[in-house]
Design a protein around this nucleic acid. Structure first.
Ligand SMILES: [Mn+2]
Ligand SMILES: [Mn+2]
Ligand SMILES: [Zn+2]
Ligand SMILES: [Zn+2]
Lengths: 139, 139
DNA sequence: GTTCAAGATTGTAATAATTACAAGTTTGAA
DNA sequence: TTCAAACTTGTAATTATTACAATCTTGAAC
């Protein structure tokens, strides 16, 4: 299923989540801004069109979306929680120079060791840190 | 090289880091408590023997140890930074029930995709969340 | 389209982790 | 022993997040 605003909206409707103006705007923002934004980024961008928007609403909405399974929380670095509308398993690379977070495909399931066979795994995160190709070129 | 207090102390000496009483105690604590402790845990445990120990010293020391490459910062969960004296690559599993963090072996190098071939990778973290075998048994 | 209760939003206050900073203390080389 | 550099400490500042109460919105029932 493609990650479009309409599809995600439908998914929320099916889960009986009420679709307020603010929630829809935040959802739309996440679909259009796949850069793994922080609360601060979401807030300062959306505030331009919605001057009364509260940061609390963003926190509440993101928590709701996470519970509903529509966003993934990215804690690749302490002190800057980020949010990803793409909840399928994939890796994240954070460039220490430009600060961008890149997605990359990785399937670690075949590598899960025997000693975790009796564990129930809910989420699998792969986080890399380093310098991206573009920043290496510039330097 | 084995992760003993003496070996690590020697490593710091070679890096010309001055070995204060507090720093050595914190290092020793990390060697003896491989549970990936938080600053709060380190502080409340060490305070028993060193009543004047400051939390700032713990933060400073941990930052110094990280820079020196002797500890790894674990940010498996927002709002609780943890520290690991074992800096070799390995995975971390956090049990949502008991809160324990388990180490497990994993070598993802063969899985690194082509699209990262031009990137410089400094650190590779693998974080799992779920319920550990013991907690599953009890329930 | 009115009514109304449940739920959502908002602004502010509270909480908690971390950092900044200045004053006092320790350390080790000379 | 001397002394400057580095370390430690306690407190204040900063920042991200949560709690909360008042207000507003929403949508189902009439
Ligand atoms: Mn992503
Ligand atoms: Mn570990
Ligand atoms: Zn970059
Ligand atoms: Zn457990």
């Amino acid at each position: 299923m493609k990650l479009t605003f309409e599809n995600l909206k439908q998914e929320l409707k099916e889960k009986n989540v009420s679709l307020s103006h603010q929630r829809l705007k935040i959802l739309e923002y996440l679909v259009q801004n796949r850069c793994h934004p922080t609360v601060e980024q979401i807030y300062s961008d959306l505030q331009k069109d919605m001057p009364t928007l509260s940061k609390t609403t963003i926190y509440n909405t993101l928590r709701m979306l996470e519970k509903a399974g529509l966003v993934k929380v990215i804690t690749i670095e302490d002190k800057e929680t980020r949010y990803d509308i793409d909840t399928k398993d994939h890796g994240h690379f954070k460039c220490e120079s430009c600060g961008n977070i890149f997605d990359f495909p990785i399937d670690i399931d075949p590598l899960i060791p025997e000693e975790l066979s009796e564990f129930k795994i809910f989420s699998k995160d792969v986080y890399f840190n380093g310098i991206c190709a573009r920043c290496l070129d510039i330097a």
